[in-house]
């Protein structure tokens, strides 16, 4: 729609509500028109609106918490989280497989949610917390890692780190998941070798073993 079709609203909306939701609901009821609706209710802030810093395209400092440690890297805005993890932070567990995130091989936690690091820009993670598959290894590996080893839930192994994170994230949210639920929950990860049966057996083992801490 062209600029004339947009009803002017006040800048300086407050931090909480933006344009008030009440006004939106009022305007979007049964009689909502296809053209702009004049706005009566305007929320004004006490302070002046601030402007947003624009950075790039050259490299800029990005600070995030990675596996519990605060890290600052220098990267262009176009750098993905996956590139920064692998090339700057030496965390090569998450894998580059599909450029559009469809493989799930680059799954990491961003603020404790499973996301694709290959479709997340590093600069979006400024001030956020990233956790990678590396946190599940070590001398006392996570039960999911042990179950993958016990069930030989890999062949070439390239998809494995993404699967391990996905299984851990899924079971954290669904600790008593059934086989069908696990199958459905892992749909975002692909394995070209076809080790799905063993991956699911490993996940079920974690559920049954009660070691799903």
């Amino acid at each position: 729609m062209n600029r004339d079709q947009l009803a002017r609203i006040a800048v300086g909306d407050d931090e909480r509500g933006g344009v008030s939701r009440r006004a939106f609901i009022k305007g979007s009821g049964a009689a909502a028109a296809a053209t702009a609706i004049a706005q009566g209710a305007i929320v004004m802030a006490d302070e002046a609106p601030t402007s947003t810093a624009v950075v790039g395209p050259e490299a800029t400092a990005i600070t995030m918490t990675v596996n519990g440690r605060q890290r600052t890297v220098s990267a262009e805005p176009r750098a993905t989280l996956l590139e920064v993890l692998r090339t700057q932070l030496d965390l090569t567990g998450a894998k580059p497989v599909s450029s559009d995130g469809s493989s799930g091989a680059s799954t990491v936690w961003l603020d404790e949610k499973p996301v694709s690091a290959s479709t997340t820009l590093a600069i979006e993670c400024e001030g956020k917390s990233v956790r990678t598959v590396e946190t599940l290894g070590g001398v006392k590996p996570d039960p999911v890692v042990s179950a993958f080893a016990a069930h030989d839930a890999m062949q070439c192994g390239f998809c494995t780190p993404g699967f391990v994170v996905a299984v851990r994230a899924f079971l954290d949210k669904n600790p008593t998941a059934s086989e069908d639920e696990i199958r459905a929950g892992l749909n975002g990860n692909l394995c070209r070798c076809g080790t799905y049966a063993n991956v699911i057996a490993a996940a079920l083992d974690v559920v049954k073993g009660g070691s799903n801490g």
């Binding site: 006040a10 344009v19 601030t50 947003t52 395209p57 176009r78």
Partner: peptide, 17 residues
Amino acid sequence: KAFEYAAPRRESELAGL
């Protein structure tokens, strides 16, 4: 392609971007 980046915190800040 290289690009500039901004992450406004309020709707009003969109105006300048």
